[in-house]
């Protein structure tokens, strides 16, 4: 097992790093109370997915997918297209999330999830301390 992991890591280090970053992002989303921090975690989780997809399109000794006479091996353009649009859509959704946070702050005067849940009337022991 240890042997397998040590060999697997060398050829797949991109995926391993993407998974570690995705775990950090996920922890930020579910483990933190501050809504702004949650959105930052969402961004990190998103970039981990980008990293994973782009890694799948890489070809050893390939070049960027722009046709030229002297090159024959190109990396895969399809994951790049998917991620390009995902980045721009990601910032649009981030803007939406921030707009909601600004409104929540104006209405409830807090961006802390615990305090928001308390305001909602869950204070009678229903809220466990997550």
């Amino acid at each position: 097992m240890i042997n397998y992991i040590s060999i697997h890591w060398i050829s797949h280090y991109n995926y391993w790093a993407a998974i570690v970053i995705a775990m950090v992002g996920l922890y930020m989303i579910i483990g933190h109370n501050n809504l702004i921090k949650k959105v930052a975690g969402l961004n990190i989780l998103q970039t981990a997915v980008f990293l994973m997809y782009i890694s799948m399109g890489v070809i050893t000794d390939g070049t960027a997918p722009i046709a030229a006479e002297t090159f024959t091996i190109y990396s895969n353009p399809l994951p790049q297209v998917l991620m390009l649009t995902a980045i721009v859509v990601g910032v649009a959704t981030t803007a939406m999330a921030f707009a909601l946070i600004v409104r929540i702050k104006e209405t409830c005067n807090t961006v802390d999830e615990d305090e928001l849940l308390e305001r909602e009337g869950h204070q009678n022991g229903n809220v466990e301390e997550w």
Partner: peptide
Amino acid sequence: TMLLIFDAFAGRPLATQNTTT
């Protein structure tokens, strides 16, 4: 759209309530 989003944020008044956060 990016300019409109920025304008919507920047044109918003600052939260006036005094907070301890």
